[in-house]
Design a binder for these strands. Structure first.
Lengths: 334, 334
DNA sequence: CGACGGATTGCAAGGCTGTGCAGCATGTGG
DNA sequence: CCACATGCTGCACAGCCTTGCAATCCGTCG
């Protein structure tokens, strides 16, 4: 196969157009000085030969590949997929191209991903999952690679860190539960232990304490639909089952709701109030009508990509965005 | 920013290790002849400097970039996201890296995507959505770029074409409906007009005719949950509403079910049988329990990636895979 | 002890592009 | 008609890597 590889080079175009190779290069470089006539000849020759500038060589020269590396685990998850979509779209508009690296959430594999980014001299990397090792982060920064961490810890300096007001959001849910007349509330979390997940948990429990509500917290498995069902089993078989449960993510919430209805015959929100986080598409589906906080996916992607294009950036850049409450029908009105 | 760009090169490693640049290169080329002692020195120097082979330059030399371009629209859709995940994983295992290009389903934008692939000298492109122009396909092939079309038309020669037994699957659903005692059946389709979608439609209608079932067909909007609801509205307000509906995709089916239950109070499968296609995660959720055909996502991805790695390939390569029926609870047992 | 073979190593070419610099032609103004 | 500014163009180099080829080194055998 490799033997068959035969792309047309600027050299050939130049020959065909009867000009120098530089002229070809300049034709495809915006702002370069080329006579309209020459440009025309070059474009025609390029067209007929099917020439396309080699971005590998170009990246080599300019030290700017145009590649942005997206580091993600669980791509198929609704929230991740939505964010991925927004990011790739904005990147394309900005003239960048997205490289996708799948990780298994282990920090080690995130490191592996970032090494790939370095291999391809990516202009930047955006991390949606896991937490890279400090040493690798430094390596990236040292080689002039921008880094964006979305909903990650914010220990490290250098990268842009985009986070949400998780704690406040949790507090608002707690308020809503209180207004709905809930007495005992619960927080259903996964064992992922992400910074944002933990912030929601702490925020919720703190608020519950302030409201004087009895509060329980449970963690189980991955942040998935299945875990939601298991958590429902555990919560709803308690002696004093809670009548309001905040799930750390919509997937958990969907699983929780299904289990609550089918295995326990509970009606939502009459007998049990539920809230989620993310506002994945399914949260709006008829069977769920889940009250939840919407991740401002477009905004996140927008800020990330905008930051990547800025000339100079502050070594400590933080962006805090607001997750907006989407009121549907899984919590009783106050 | 670009000014700050400063990756360490093989030159510097060589200097530090006190060897020639070739030695460095050979150290990182499997199978090359290097003395263990030299290799050790090089590796240490590389480690301490944070050297990583420049895949841009390497791709330039070898005429093999290691990049595979994935052309997708509606990335956030469950089936697409699942396929994307499987593909990126298999590609990573094969030592390739995935570039993701978002399209808007227009053939023109698919062309744009493939041009990006050419720019970066991708080893191959995998098209999951839309249908590229013949001229661009030829350009890709001419430059030695492999092409895989998943669930697309199969007019063009050169690319690998992976398809499913859509028609047979539709037929089996029709059989199941007949066994369940359905009298009037319907096919709910979107207006996307994809080859696979149309094959399901035709297969279903043909089978219905053979069974002597009254059959209706409707098409509306995009292949989405919302369209499913609209289609349900239209089907269920008919004078002679069907009692078995095959939805062209699971998303449509989920929307259809929700609308049927909530707006029409129908119980499934007692009063209405529903089937879908894709077996997205939500199809297995408690609220749906949808009987559907499973896209063999892993197999599709496996075959695609395997084909990419083959030495020589046939100009006409077709792979036909079986979608397996997943029996849940949206069709009455026969 | 000399020759020979095998393992390593360095040199230099080749792959493709962008761009500073100097030369060229052309046009303009005096 | 000449001096000068202006706008294009081509040359050559730099950027980083892989690899064929020739040279070198060392061990071993006759």
């Amino acid at each position: 196969m490799a033997s068959k590889r035969d792309f047309v080079s600027a050299q050939q175009v130049a020959q065909r157009a009867g000009v120098s190779r530089s002229a070809v290069s300049r034709t495809f470089t915006p702002g370069a000085s080329v006579a309209p006539e020459t440009r025309q000849k070059v474009i025609e020759a390029a067209e007929s030969l099917g020439y396309h500038v080699n971005h590998l060589a170009r990246g080599l020269m300019l030290k700017e590949s145009g590649i942005v590396c997206l580091v993600v685990s669980e791509v198929a998850t609704p929230y991740r997929a939505a964010l991925l979509k927004a990011l790739t779209q904005k990147l394309q508009i900005a003239g960048k191209i997205a490289m996708l690296v799948n990780t298994d959430r282990s920090d080690e594999s995130v490191g592996h991903a970032l090494k790939q980014a370095i291999h391809y001299r990516a202009d930047a990397s955006i991390v949606l999952s896991g937490m890279p090792d400090r040493s690798i982060v430094e390596l990236c920064l040292r080689s002039g690679q921008r880094l964006v961490l979305i909903n990650r810890d914010d220990e490290l300096d250098g990268p842009l860190r985009i986070n949400l007001n998780d704690a406040e959001a949790a507090e608002r849910i707690c308020t809503a539960f209180a207004r709905a007349g809930c007495r005992r509330v619960g927080f259903a979390n996964s064992e992922a232990g992400t910074a944002s997940l933990m912030a929601r948990e702490e925020g919720f429990l703190a608020a519950a304490a302030r409201f004087g509500l009895e509060a329980y917290c449970m963690r189980y498995g991955a942040t998935s639909y299945q875990s939601g069902r298991v958590l429902a089993q555990r919560f709803l078989t308690m002696d004093n089952r809670p009548d309001g449960v905040f799930c750390a993510s919509d997937l958990l919430a969907c699983g929780f709701m299904d289990e609550a209805r089918m295995a326990f015959g509970l009606s939502i929100p009459e007998q049990l109030c539920i809230a989620g986080f993310d506002d994945i598409e399914q949260a709006s589906w008829g069977s769920y009508q889940l009250t939840t906080f919407a991740q401002p996916v477009e905004l996140i992607a927008g800020h990330a990509v905008e930051w990547l294009q800025m000339e100079d950036v502050d070594p400590i850049s933080n962006i805090k965005l607001q997750a907006e409450l989407v009121w549907r029908r899984s919590i009783r009105a106050g």
